[in-house]
Amino acid sequence: MNVAATPTLPRIEPAMLAQLLRGKASGVALVLPATAFLAVFFVWPVLQMIVLSVTQQRVEGVLIEGWTLDNYLRLFCNDLYFRVLLRTLRLAAASSVVAVLLAYPLAIAIARGGPGLARLVTITLVAPLLVNVVVRSYGWSAILNNAGALAYVLKATGLSASPPALLYTEWAVLIACVHVYLPFVVMPIATAIGRIDPSVEEAARVAGASRMMTFLRVTFPLSLPGLAVGASLAFSLTAAAYVMPQILGGNFSPLLGTLIEQQVLTLSDWPFGAAISTLLIIVVLAVNLVFIGLLSRRFSRWTGGAK
């Protein structure tokens, strides 16, 4: 509310004005700590990183005066870096698609099942988040390696005489990413489905829609806001993953996160590392904006008001 405009209104009691100001002040006071924290520990470092990405250093590690775009040119001209970028985007997209496919049955169970079932599914989903990422990754490596648990089960059951090598491939990274990022996809979708009036689905079924058609024509379109949030979370988290690709992907399929670590810690080329990081942020942001934009155009018809 604009306090400056209030004098034009008739009879504003001073007490009311004071209350209004106090309400505004307390609102600012409540938001201030978090804002200040983010400004100092997030916005400022990101700005620093962007600035760093347009500088260059000599071999000895001394920064050269002046700005340059050489780091970015190097990123796009070198085939290796471009391939890593594409691989990162592909893996992130695959992770979010697989997670969404797995998420719907779980989200429906949480939103429409009984309270007992909903709690059980939620706890099972969230449990992996309680395990440290390094421990979890080594756990997957124990399962997925050539002599691991999965290979043993496949051989023992006769399903496969020579189980596929999964460890140190993109598949291993994908499995681990989907495993841990699944709750971030399920929860928003479950919330969106929970918000759909059950009688709307019942109306569809009475009108002649099978359960499948009811899902496709009513439940799914009405859950798109949840899907938008969940899919972008899975995409962004996978694209920025570092530990899982490092442990499970090995050296044969590095992602951008691995590349950044190499530049910064191994090669000490901070400006180039900063450029890769900036590119990662920009690409993830762009993909999310386009994706959410496309989806919201689909459902703005009923979220944004009638024509």
Partner: peptide, 9 residues
Amino acid sequence: FQNYALFPH
């Protein structure tokens, strides 16, 4: 239905 249950989309 009491709440009409129209398809909002």
